[in-house]
Amino acid sequence: MNGKTGKRNSLLAAAWILIVLTLAVAGAPEGRAWAGTLNYRLKWIYNASVIGDLYASGKGYFRAAGLEVKVRPGGPERDALRELELGYADFGVASADQVIRAVAKGAPLVVVAQLFQVNPLQWLYRTGKGMIRKLDDLKGRTIGITYGKNDEIIMRTLLAKAGIGRGQVEFYSVRLDYTPFLRGKVDLWPVYANTQAVFLRDKLSRAGEETALFVPGDFGVRFVANSVVTSEKLFKRNPELVKRFVGALLAGWKAALDVKHQKEALAILRQVDRDTPLRILKTQLEITRRLVMPRSGPPLGTIDFEGWRQTERIMLEQGQIKAPVKILSCLKPML
């Protein structure tokens, strides 16, 4: 075989692979019907942040609404929004920045409910160096941020708002390992107030250290967190199903956070999180309640339009999106 023929054969082989792959792909998840089980992809692994989702599933709220729902855990490698578009999930949970970023790239998504009324993403710090009562108090501190994630956007917004420039604070790149914070190398560490913060504070308090949470919302930055999202296609084709799903889900959340059902909720949490002590789980549940159903706040599941508008504006200012996405048009409260 001469070189020319070899090359031609290689190209032919490559073309064939491409054709076969394209054909295989063409018949993939496109024609998925919603008659069967609905897949609900969470944002994170099973913990207190998803108690309502687990409760709705475990206590038969979905079934009572005539729905078969499979609640699937999320994680750093999962992207509910991508799965929605690919048809692998029917509903998913994502934070506002994720949704806005996806919409900016043309993802056909609809936000149908907002689970957290107060963003659980906050910063834990030791009070030994003084309380942070105003943004200026951040000066001179080492602040942990996860580059590329929403905590970076929030912190940069806060600093810009206070006019704190480079050199006045130090950033520390955060990972899942808390050692730098526990060893005092970092002053402020980003945490979920209802999960990580609980056991970290418990750990530090047992070591005799007092801690507090720095809450961005207290300084006027309302960055929307976990919300329930579905595809535009499902929303348009079967709004009734979406409504039933959201209704059942929120009913589940409401029941899970009801003090009367605390025992059952904790039992469910215990099933999926055997390693966390019960007293920690209890505290996590209580804090989750305050974040999802604040006492003087709006009803459970309410979409905070102003919060979404602000989130979009912040992302635009921070260069996370290149142009406005009109996110309000994607918000379709199903309450």
Binding site: T22, V25, A26, R82, E85, V103, A107
Partner: peptide
């Protein structure tokens, strides 16, 4: 790209 256009996926995916 063939996946993208075959399934009409957005730039996000």
């Amino acid at each position: 790209l063939s996946l993208k256009y075959g399934l009409q996926l957005s730039d996000y995916v």
